[in-house]
């Protein structure tokens, strides 16, 4: 019996080794192709795209070797890479390229065949292409995916396909945005795809919209939002929102008074208060203000922090 088990095990292990070895060879060949042919082709595609963008009109250019394996993905990555690092591009020529070569449909097919983070990466690529509503509607089938990253990338596809619906789409998103997800939305905003009007976002009762609004205020240094921020800090909002608003005020280096932030400070845990003290000391807040904000027990910590930024005269 043991002998038979050994034979079965040996056969299975040999098969697994062969499969892994074949996969390793394919990966090595692919890596070699990537550093050779693909690098040259990507450079060529980018050049053709940029020339087409500069000319602005005319027939869609021909891309060499587009029927070869992996070339269509290269073109999609080049278009997505270009739109990802630039803003204010004329999307009409890019849209024509995407439509002519069917990049969006082809990517949707690839996305269907993958799963998990690979699917999320496909959707991210799709979100960076100039899209129409039909493609976004087809991508919406993954909105109920078990993978959180996939669900969020579906939202990004919908946002880039129809920015006018941004507020509704973000408000209806079923899960709270994580910090990194907010970061991705802000990159989309900086590409000029979403409106920067922070007011409706910060005043909205929806948690997700508020978080995005607060991030806009912090990233663009909008000091006029101080009133809104103080209201959130002083109000009964969720602890994380109040904390975010308080940090935003500190990032803007606005003067803080015990009257406005006292309640929020009391609600914070000692560790959170210490983290805030470190943040404020690094931002250059005066020891006098820190002394007024924090209790006598925490003053020693506060003062030693501020001292550590002062030049020693001894």
């Amino acid at each position: 019996m043991t002998e038979r088990l050994l034979i079965v095990y040996t056969a299975l292990a040999a098969l697994a080794t062969a499969v892994l070895f074949a996969a390793l060879c394919v990966a090595k060949l692919r890596a070699r192709r990537r550093s050779g042919r693909d690098a040259v082709l990507r450079s060529k595609y980018l050049r053709i795209l940029m020339l087409y963008l500069l000319s602005g009109e005319g027939p869609v250019p021909r891309f060499p070797l587009i029927r070869r394996a992996g070339a269509r993905r290269l073109l999609a990555e080049t278009v997505a890479g270009l739109t990802g690092v630039t803003c204010g591009l004329d999307v009409a020529p890019l849209r024509r390229v995407v439509a002519e070569y069917g990049l969006d449909r082809w990517l949707l097919g690839c996305i269907r065949r993958t799963s998990g983070c690979r699917r999320a990466r496909g959707l991210m690529l799709l979100a960076r292409l100039p899209l129409d509503g039909a493609v976004a509607a087809r991508a919406a089938r993954y909105a109920r995916s078990r993978n959180r990253r996939v669900r969020f990338q579906v939202l990004m596809v919908q946002l880039s396909a129809d920015p006018s619906m941004a507020l509704r789409l973000m408000a209806e998103y079923p899960a709270p945005f994580s910090a990194c997800e907010v970061g991705e939305i802000l990159i989309l905003l900086r590409r000029g795809m979403l409106p920067i009007a922070y007011g409706p976002l910060v005043e909205s009762p929806c948690r997700n919209l508020r978080v995005v609004g607060l991030s806009i205020v912090r990233q663009f240094g909008i000091e006029e939002a101080e009133r809104h921020l103080l209201r959130i800090v002083d109000g009964d909002e969720a602890p994380e929102l109040g904390r975010e608003a308080l940090y935003t005020l500190c990032a803007l280096r606005r003067p803080l008074t015990r009257r406005h932030v006292g309640r929020r400070l009391t609600a914070m845990s000692p560790a959170e208060r210490k983290a805030l003290m470190r943040y404020m000391a690094a931002e250059g807040y005066s020891p006098g203000l820190l002394r007024r904000l924090f209790d006598a027990r925490e003053r020693t910590y506060c003062e030693s922090l501020v001292q550590s930024y002062k030049r020693s005269l001894a």
């Binding site: 983070c117 999320a120 991210m124 970061g183 990159i187």
Partner: peptide, 29 residues
């Protein structure tokens, strides 16, 4: 272990492509 490394690779590629941590400190981390 190989499966875990392969899954981690996909996550790493996704995080690198998103660039969410590159422009600003998300949540002040």
């Amino acid at each position: 272990l190989l499966l875990l490394v392969l899954r981690a690779r996909e996550r790493r590629l996704l995080a690198a492509a998103a660039r969410a941590a590159y422009s600003d400190a998300p949540d002040g981390i």
